[in-house]
């Protein structure tokens, strides 16, 4: 059980960030991370380390999130709330060298709403690539799809995000 604490210490933040970004609900995200920890504990004896522990942990979280989103289709979606950050349980760290002409907080909130509108497979790749800084190869391994699929999903997702934020560009 001590090993579980170490996993949580090292990967708790990325696991929570992925779950919160995918589910857009902090309570559900915490539940998913909790379930993921139990699965990691159960599967740890069979873990041979061929994949990195980080990728493996995130893969478990991604699978649990997909299950939840699939179930949500039948139970109804979450109500819209004005603060996309608050609902998702995300924190925004102000960017130091930011163009002063644009309100970064406002733009970041608009970006979160745009992420809300993405289909789960596109939302997943955006979060893994740009929020958790995974490489295309790591993402392909984590999601069990070819790298080409990852690149095309990312390109489609960025097109949608660009469209949503077009009016804010200077």
């Amino acid at each position: 059980m001590a090993a579980l604490g170490e996993v949580f210490e090292r990967y708790g933040d990325p696991m929570t960030t992925l779950a919160a970004s995918m589910l857009r609900n902090r309570t559900e995200a915490d539940d998913v991370v909790e379930d993921a920890l139990l699965r990691i504990h159960d599967a740890a004896p069979g873990f041979r380390g061929e994949r990195g522990l980080r990728t493996w942990s995130l893969r478990i979280v991604a699978n649990l999130c997909r299950d939840r989103l699939r179930r949500r289709k039948f139970t109804g979606t979450l109500p819209d709330e004005p603060d996309a950050f608050e609902r998702a349980g995300l924190q925004f760290d102000p960017i130091a060298d930011w163009d002063g002409a644009l309100d970064q907080r406002v733009m970041a909130a608009a970006l979160e709403r745009a992420i809300d509108s993405l289909p789960p497979d596109q939302r997943e790749v955006v979060v893994l690539r740009h929020r958790l800084d995974l490489s295309h190869a790591e993402m392909a391994e984590l999601l069990n799809v070819p790298e080409g699929t990852i690149k095309s999903r990312l390109a489609r997702a960025l097109t949608v995000l660009r469209e949503h934020l077009k009016g804010m560009d200077t």
Binding site: D13, T16, A19, S21, F85, F92, V126, V127, H130
Partner: peptide, 9 residues
Amino acid sequence: LLSASHASA
């Protein structure tokens, strides 16, 4: 902006 947002465990 994407990388500036995260959640703490």
